[in-house]
């Protein structure tokens, strides 16, 4: 993919659990073409899957009439992934999960997706749509200089 400034790949997913795997494999293919290491591709796959699950479950509330848009923009040294849904976006970010509290039943065992995403990519931001929909999460993963 050398010689290209930005190359876009777009996927539209139905709001049905399981279809996040289509976005995962597409992101992995693009990242592989860009020269990312296998471990970073695994990080990206998990982050993209969690972003799509949130969009399907919380953004589009499992409404199969709505779709989730995934736009992958491959630059020279980074890959940006936008996952777009028809929800209003988050008013408040959930508190940081505490695994010990979860293990003791003092905290809901769910609610780890956002934190997995933040831990696995170089940038993550959640943007609420200005029209009350078309909210998105934007992820960026960068090529290390030694792997580029």
């Amino acid at each position: 993919m050398s010689g290209l400034k930005t190359t876009n790949v777009e996927v539209r997913l139905p709001s049905r659990m399981g279809f996040e795997k289509v976005a995962m494999s597409t992101a992995a293919s693009v990242a592989k073409l860009m020269g990312f290491r296998e471990d970073r591709i695994e990080d990206l796959k998990t982050a993209v899957a969690e972003a799509c699950i949130n969009a399907i479950e919380h953004g589009n509330r499992l409404n199969e009439k709505l779709s989730v848009g995934v736009i992958l923009s491959a630059g020279e040294d980074s890959l940006e992934v936008k996952v777009i849904d028809d929800g209003k976006g988050m008013k408040n970010h959930p508190s940081r999960p505490d695994i010990d509290r979860k293990m003791h039943g003092e905290e809901d065992p769910r609610g780890m997706g956002m934190f997995l995403i933040q831990a696995l990519v170089d940038e993550a931001e959640w943007v609420a749509g200005t029209d009350g929909k078309s909210s998105y999460v934007r992820l960026v993963i960068r090529l290390d200089k030694e792997q580029a």
Partner: peptide, 14 residues
């Protein structure tokens, strides 16, 4: 396995 799956494993451990 995704975060919902991890949550099920945590529930099992609890």
């Amino acid at each position: 396995i995704n975060s919902s799956g991890i949550a099920l494993v945590i529930q099992l451990l609890i």
